[in-house]
Design a protein around this nucleic acid. Sequence first.
DNA 1: CGCCACTTTGAAACAGTTCAACGTCAGTGG
DNA 2: CCACTGACGTTGAACTGTTTCAAAGTGGCG
Lengths: 246, 246
Amino acid sequence: MNFSKNDALERLFRRIDVRDNLSGEEREALLEAAGEIRTLPAGSRISSKGEELDRSTLLVSGIAARTVYTEMGHRQITAFHIAGDFVDLHAFPLKIMDHNVEAITACEVIHFPHPALRQITERHSHLTRVLWLLTLLDSAIHRQWLAVMGQLQVTDHLAHLLCEQFTRAKAVGLAAGNAFPFPITQQDLADAMGRSVVHVNRTLQGLRRQDLIEWQGGDVTILDWPALQELAEFDPAYLHLERLPR
Amino acid sequence: MNFSKNDALERLFRRIDVRDNLSGEEREALLEAAGEIRTLPAGSRISSKGEELDRSTLLVSGIAARTVYTEMGHRQITAFHIAGDFVDLHAFPLKIMDHNVEAITACEVIHFPHPALRQITERHSHLTRVLWLLTLLDSAIHRQWLAVMGQLQVTDHLAHLLCEQFTRAKAVGLAAGNAFPFPITQQDLADAMGRSVVHVNRTLQGLRRQDLIEWQGGDVTILDWPALQELAEFDPAYLHLERLPR
DNA sequence: CGCCACTTTGAAACAGTTCAACGTCAGTGG
DNA sequence: CCACTGACGTTGAACTGTTTCAAAGTGGCG
């Protein structure tokens, strides 16, 4: 009965395994806390600003984004999420959502009811620290985005975003060689970078012309990793890919 | 003996009290986990990128900033911290610092050794969720900064930053009427906004000319809160200033 | 086949940067 | 007590990156 859930949580376990070791008991506790798998269509809301949540959502497949809207209706994407990411685990301590989470592609998700998570905090202090860690990874990525957005040129910013997505995809086993799935529109990309679509389009063409990347059919291929990494000043330290006792 | 520590933790307790209720036992646990007060000179490092920390630092007085440097030596400030902020509590689960924390002014701090924090996670699950919450507030602020940086003009960005700092200062009792201490240079401000000092200077003059703010001797006075708030599209929801069971 | 969403292009307008110089003020030492 | 210093703030003008607007091209899908 837990077979399908075990599959669904595979990416999450991989994401954790990169950074720490989970006991069988802890894995079981997570499996028990997990609800049923649901499928959401592309473009739908996973959670919305202002909502008081009583569950948190794990992304099992697809791509989701955190979004904030200005009064003028302009959208800022503050994070992209892939399989294995808890898109709103922070709502467990915070309770109220301060931004939206949107399904960019069709997404499969699993809900974790907050009472079940609360039980984990009462019974499994190490697992609690691991879940805490997961929410802090988001925080670390936000900081890096701020630095990149504030200090780098658009070309470098774009290169950085691709380095990050590739590295994260690889870490949970979603990359195939030098390629990874990233089926988003240039508008999504522009919203994430805080730039106009037109400019992002031209910048993207620049990276293609330099034979650094290829991007077709929703798949990105890194053609020259060293060059891309140098351009982006990409240092994966902030992704905390080391296994350490937490 | 705990008198001075009690004073030192006052802002932290206020910061928590705004969002949740702490039992006497929980307050005691925090006091016990706290080390001695230290004073650091302006410009010094509180913690550095790459460091493996075995303690986390609470800011008791002064202003600190999280910083990330590019290869070219450009500095991005990703957060400002004031009394009552745990500047690197995230290093408790994360262990390794992925950015620096600098003392902008002279700062008083208290260290919390990680073994003591670990004991809290083992014995006080509610207090653990509260500490977790504190780290997530930083995260929420990062997201807002991303949205503001990406979508707002510089004038609005600056107005937003001042609205946020004023609101946060007020929440821990550091504001006097419409004024709050913010003794940072325009260069610090520019590094936080990802813009040139020259442009930040001109923008600041704009806000002063419109009689929205006054800024002298390290103190900012909000002259027209409604106008400033509207300009900045400032909605404090992301600061989670509601008392809710966590 | 035709529609719609997405990508690409060009050109004018604008926001923000850069550079270089000058102003101001508090602290320091002669 | 005053001159000097260095950090910080302010100014002007040329320049560049980015946006905006508007139009045309592309491709998947009912």
